[in-house]
Amino acid sequence: MEKILLWVGWIGIAIVIFALLAIVAAAGRGYYPMLALVAALPWAAPALVGFVLVAAFGSMLAQLKAIRAASERQADIFQKLFDRKPSA
């Protein structure tokens, strides 16, 4: 699941950036590209933030999965040490 979220986030970020570049390139010359960029920001900024959050959530899930695996390994090691220790 985390890899899917990472891919969706990164692909979404790339699509938004390419759409912004296409809008700026199609605007012509002079101050029109800047005007087009400013006009596109109301939808582009929330889209970028949303896709960054999706990618960050996917990364967080991967980290939590690694933490859980390490915790289970530590519990197994502790149990082996506890079983091997002679009782007094």
Score class of each variant (00 low, 15 high):
residue 76 D to F: 05
residue 50 G to V: 11
residue 44 A to C: 03
residue 78 F to T: 11
residue 88 A to Y: 08
residue 73 R to A: 15
residue 27 A to F: 03
residue 32 Y to M: 15
residue 70 A to S: 13
residue 68 R to K: 08
residue 32 Y to Q: 15
residue 10 W to V: 06
residue 22 A to S: 11
residue 48 L to V: 14
residue 60 M to R: 07
residue 42 P to W: 13
residue 74 Q to F: 04
residue 10 W to D: 07
residue 31 Y to F: 14
residue 5 L to A: 10
residue 37 L to N: 01
residue 22 A to Q: 13
residue 87 S to P: 03
residue 73 R to N: 06
residue 48 L to D: 09
residue 61 L to N: 10
residue 80 K to Y: 06
residue 20 L to Q: 09
residue 82 F to G: 05
residue 6 L to G: 04
residue 6 L to A: 13
residue 48 L to R: 12
residue 78 F to I: 05
residue 14 A to I: 08
residue 62 A to L: 06
residue 76 D to P: 04
residue 77 I to F: 02
residue 24 V to I: 14
residue 14 A to G: 09
residue 52 V to L: 10
residue 10 W to R: 06
residue 33 P to D: 14
residue 21 L to T: 13
residue 46 P to E: 12
residue 39 A to K: 11
residue 4 I to A: 10
residue 69 A to N: 00
residue 68 R to Y: 03
residue 65 K to I: 00
residue 56 A to V: 11
residue 41 L to F: 09
residue 83 D to V: 12
residue 34 M to A: 07
residue 10 W to L: 07
residue 47 A to G: 07
residue 75 A to L: 10
residue 31 Y to T: 14
residue 46 P to M: 10
residue 2 E to W: 01
residue 1 M to F: 06
residue 67 I to Q: 13
residue 52 V to A: 10
residue 21 L to E: 14
residue 67 I to L: 12
residue 11 I to C: 14
residue 8 V to A: 07
residue 11 I to E: 06
residue 20 L to G: 10
residue 38 V to D: 04
residue 80 K to P: 02
residue 5 L to Q: 12
residue 47 A to P: 01
residue 20 L to S: 01
residue 30 G to H: 09
residue 16 V to I: 08
residue 68 R to A: 13
residue 65 K to R: 07
residue 85 K to Q: 14
residue 34 M to N: 07
residue 21 L to V: 15
residue 81 L to W: 08
residue 20 L to V: 05
residue 53 L to P: 03
residue 4 I to R: 07
residue 4 I to V: 13
residue 83 D to L: 11
residue 12 G to F: 01
residue 40 A to N: 12
residue 31 Y to Q: 13
residue 66 A to V: 08
residue 77 I to D: 05
residue 58 G to C: 07
residue 5 L to M: 11
residue 23 I to N: 10
residue 76 D to I: 06
residue 65 K to P: 02
residue 3 K to M: 04
residue 34 M to S: 02
residue 43 W to E: 04
residue 40 A to T: 09
residue 2 E to K: 01
residue 67 I to H: 03
residue 9 G to R: 03
residue 47 A to C: 05
residue 48 L to M: 15
residue 68 R to D: 11
residue 36 A to T: 02
residue 32 Y to F: 15
residue 54 V to A: 09
residue 64 L to M: 06
residue 10 W to A: 04
residue 9 G to E: 10
residue 44 A to Y: 02
residue 24 V to H: 09
residue 55 A to Y: 02
residue 64 L to H: 02
residue 64 L to P: 00
residue 87 S to A: 15
residue 10 W to Y: 13
residue 79 Q to T: 04
residue 76 D to Q: 06
residue 59 S to G: 14
residue 51 F to N: 02
residue 18 F to C: 13
residue 19 A to D: 15
residue 73 R to L: 05
residue 65 K to T: 07
residue 45 A to M: 08
residue 82 F to S: 12
residue 64 L to V: 00
residue 16 V to S: 03
